Computed example of a mutant assay.
Amino acid sequence: MTIYKIEADHTYKHISAKEETTIHQFRDFKGQPLTGIWKTPRFQLLENVTPVKSEKNSEQAKSNGFDARNYGNMLFIKKEFDHLFSLPNVELLPVAIESGEPNFSFLNVLNAIEAIDFSNLDYQQSMKMLKSNNIRFISENIGELEIFRDKKLINFYYCTDAFKTLFEINDIKGLKFEEVGKTL
């Protein structure tokens, strides 16, 4: 099975947290359920936040019509697509993006798993595998999951063809899928 890393499509505008504390709270999210403690974070388009003129100009030239965004270790999707992501290992939580953007949901992928096979690899070999986009994934641990996070590389979202196809069929814009490996 082919595995993809989910990344931001840089032809669309980026978002940024409205407050520094918003970013810090996401550092602790490592696959645990958040429903009981969730406070809706607020984001806005980077062009409205950045004081750097060249960055602001660059962002203004990008397309505004995104349906999904990847921001650090967070993955957002327009609320209108929530019904497509009612997966057993996904918790959908509200997120506000200002500047006229519709409401979004944070896809909190639950239960980070040991997905990448680092067995019999030293540090240098592990890094070489990751950089080469020839990552070995453990099929038994992934099972039927369509989207997942690895315990060791928690900041990245990985998915299968089924998840990627869901985006393509529904013409959801704002993310790209980079093929990074196969399951063993």
Rank of each mutant, 00 (worst) to 15 (best):
M129V: 06
I3Y: 09
L93M: 08
V180A: 11
T2D: 09
Y71I: 09
I154Y: 09
L145Y: 11
I172P: 02
K62V: 02
P33G: 06
R69F: 08
L45M: 05
R69N: 08
K173N: 14
K56T: 14
Q60E: 09
I37N: 14
S58D: 10
S105C: 07
D171K: 14
N111H: 14
K13S: 14
I116N: 05
S119P: 04
E178T: 08
S58T: 04
I116F: 02
R42M: 02
K128N: 08
I147L: 08
A61H: 03
F43Q: 00
F177K: 07
Q32G: 10
F85Q: 13
F26P: 12
T165V: 03
F177D: 06
A115L: 00
I77G: 13
E20H: 08
E19V: 03
D82N: 13
F43R: 00
A162F: 09
L84G: 14
N70D: 02
T165Q: 15
E178D: 06
E59C: 10
N70R: 13
W38Q: 12
F104Y: 03
E47Y: 04
I77F: 01
F156A: 15
S132G: 12
L121K: 15
R42G: 01
E144I: 01
Q25R: 11
S86G: 14
N120D: 13
T21Y: 13
S99E: 12
Q25E: 13
L121N: 10
A96D: 14
I169G: 07
P51C: 03
E114T: 07
H83W: 14
L75S: 05
L166S: 03
Q25W: 07
S63H: 09
F163Y: 05
Q60C: 04
E80A: 03
G36P: 09
F66K: 00
L87T: 03
N89M: 07
T40I: 09
L34D: 07
K151G: 00
Y12T: 01
F81L: 10
I172Q: 12
F156Y: 10
F106W: 04
Q32S: 07
I116P: 02
Q25N: 06
T35C: 11
E179I: 05
K128F: 02
Q25C: 04
I97Y: 08
E101G: 00
G174M: 12
V180C: 13
G31A: 08
